[in-house]
Design a protein around this nucleic acid. Sequence first.
DNA 1: GCCAACGTTGGC
DNA 2: GCCAACGTTGGC
Length: 160
Amino acid sequence: MAQKFWLMKSEPDTYSIDHLKKDQTTWWEGVRNYQARNYMVKDMQVGDGVLFYHSNAQPPGVAGLAFVSHLAVADNSQFDKKSSVYDPKATKEKPNWFCTQVQFKAKFKNLISLNQIKVDERLKEMIVIKKGSRLSIQPVQKSDFDLICGLDETEKKKKG
DNA sequence: GCCAACGTTGGC
DNA sequence: GCCAACGTTGGC
């Protein structure tokens, strides 16, 4: 199956690209949105590219790169009564929520800010800039993924 | 902290 | 099945 590309949001106060760099891999637990869940369960494949996005950040934007390192499994946080994302309706036999594993690839030298994406005419199709878009896991076109990777390279060159 | 946009819940 | 009420997301 062809490699796909994703944007995955995380609040850096909770889990930033630096956390992922330290951990190297993490289970993407806590997603409680059906559309986002379905992308993980049905569409994500090992090796898919991930733009690691910092939401609720100053500024918000793409902080680095990761890739899918394991297919979706049951999200254990749904069974944890002490968790803020506990789901009383879920059972071990019939889990409601799933998560893929994500592995660190790179931290951008300079964060590609949401505003930078907004003003770039070439990136106008990206879901993340659509008004009211709250989807925490979104598909990304390969061309957009490559372009954003390239923007980081450009920054590196400018600095010499 | 504000609030617009969105998703979910539940009464009817 | 409709839709008002509510809770959450996330930029600003």
